[in-house]
Design a protein around this nucleic acid. Structure first.
Length: 421
RNA sequence: GGAGGGUUGGCAGAAUGGUAAUGCACCGGUUUCGAAAACCGGCGGGCGCAAGCCCUUAUAGGUUCAAGUCCUAUACCCUCCGCCA
């Protein structure tokens, strides 16, 4: 959510930002509604002032005739307030609905574009893996090596179902242990958050109202988290932090659930797109300063790149174009690993920053040195997502005989083994 | 799932239905070579240049001229029983 004051003072910028994100929104309509909201609130406030004053007098006054008269007068005022409040409630609800739809303004450096195809490559690392044999895809590799069972996965879960088995499980644990070690060195506080959370928390990160179809909701009105970002942001919701506690850096580990509604024809097989997975997520709350946000954004992205480099996976980094950004994002990088069989780069994770878009919704503030209360800035990035990352590891590390060479840094977590066969 | 008790600032803790005490902690100042102590001021949130106004006693409603206080629902916490990893 943006600051309504900022919207009022910078409507051209906001409207232009929405255009860049391909979001249809009428800022003028919002401002007209806000005028109405402010006018109505002012009227109510004035009536309340009167009511408070007179009520106070009633308490003090000894003259019972006067009391009766005042009470009679206040009865009318009370009715008036009640009616006006009812009207204003409707105004505010409509106003809030619009406010939630106003997208954050993308950074000037975000490329123009409508969809994924317009994302801009900003970096390429490593050589695209070449084989002197016909490489297999991860489905075939994992099935043959008994690392996964997709048929039974679909039997039991349905579409997009999978079982990890045997070395598929060991490799996942190896990655988690390695990630834990790798990111612990970067000064993150470790968190395992709840994965079932109250629906209100999804508004904080911007997963609601826009992505309601992608969430699993429970019969208790809760939701299953789509990423640890949701409960990590909710962690400090409603709090006012002392500035000296910033930045807050968290590394969350959680299951993640996504319905993938609207992606029915995409990635229908294998582990690229699944309904449940595990993810380590980096998250930062920092001071409300654009330069600090940018600095941490680069840092989070670089952390992830380093992690991928340490696994020696060829990758590229892209800057997502306006049309590919979520409502809350200011800017987002995706790190994409080379997938030999498909002959293209596929997303491994992403790093984003939001300015105060999320913290405004989550009501996360801090008191700066002068005692002023401000909304914090928030950022997040993938640390590692399994099983998706297995796809790139297996396909890039496969051998002619169908075995998998274990990446150097993971060996010690795989009992020192060299190969999965 | 059942029974009972509870929820007021960072913490402790008051308030015959009459408009949120007080103490501790914390921050600033005076004092001091410096500190402690003492004293003065501040110490929930929002709007406003300011005067000031509004909101705030877990949350949402209701009764009332007026609600921390009365009523209803919900959430959370504690104790006990049941179940359970």
């Amino acid at each position: 959510m943006l600051d309504i004051k900022f919207i009022r003072e910078n409507k051209e910028i906001v409207q232009e930002g929405a255009r860049k994100k391909r979001v249809d929104i009428d800022i003028e309509k919002l401002i007209a509604l806000d005028d109405q909201r402010l006018k109505e609130l002012k009227e109510i406030e004035e009536l309340r002032t009167e009511q408070n004053k007179v009520s106070n007098n009633i308490a003090r006054d000894q003259d019972s005739n006067l009391k009766i008269q005042l009470i009679e007068e206040m009865r009318v005022v009370k009715e008036d307030i009640k009616n006006k409040e009812e009207k204003t409630k409707a105004t505010i609800e409509e106003w809030q609905k619009l406010m939630l739809e106003v997208p954050n303004i993308p950074d000037i450096s975000v490329p123009e574009g409508k969809s994924e195809e317009d994302n801009q490559e900003i970096k390429r690392w490593g050589e695209q893996t070449k084989f002197d044999f016909e490489p297999k895809d991860h489905l075939e590799l994992m099935t043959k090596l008994k690392m996964a069972d997709f048929e039974r996965g679909v039997k039991v879960h349905g579409f997009r179902g999978y079982y990890l088995i045997g070395d598929g499980v060991l490799l996942s644990f190896a990655l988690w242990n390695y990630a834990l070690e790798f990111f612990s060195k970067k000064d993150f506080n470790l968190v395992m958050p709840p994965a079932i959370v109250k629906k209100s928390n999804f508004y904080g990160t911007g997963h609601l109202p826009s992505n309601v179809d992608d969430l699993y909701l429970t019969q208790d009105g809760d939701g299953l988290i789509a990423t640890a970002e949701i409960p990590l942001m909710a962690f400090h919701s409603g709090e006012i932090l002392p500035e000296n506690e910033l930045p807050k850096k968290y590394l969350g580990f959680s299951p993640s659930f996504r319905r993938e509604a609207g992606a029915y024809s995409k990635d229908v097989k294998g582990l690229i797109r699944v309904n449940e997975f595990f993810k380590f997520e980096q998250l930062i709350l920092c001071e409300a300063d654009h330069d600090i946000s940018v600095k941490f954004h680069e840092e989070l992205n670089r952390n992830f790149e380093e992690f991928v480099e340490s696994l020696n996976l060829p990758y590229r980094t892209i800057s997502a174009c306006g049309g590919d950004l979520g409502r809350g994002h200011v800017k987002m990088y995706d790190v994409e690993a080379w997938i030999p069989k498909e002959g293209k780069y596929r997303e491994l994770g992403s790093a984003s920053y939001f300015h105060d878009f999320q913290s405004r919704r989550c009501n996360i503030r801090y008191k700066d040195k002068s005692g002023k209360i401000k909304y914090a800035h928030s950022l997040n990035a993938t640390a590692v997502a399994t099983p998706r990352i297995l796809v790139s590891i297996l396909e890039n590390y496969q051998q002619a005989d169908g075995s998998i060479k274990i990446p150097e840094v993971l060996k010690k977590y795989m009992g020192g083994k060299e190969f999965i066969k």
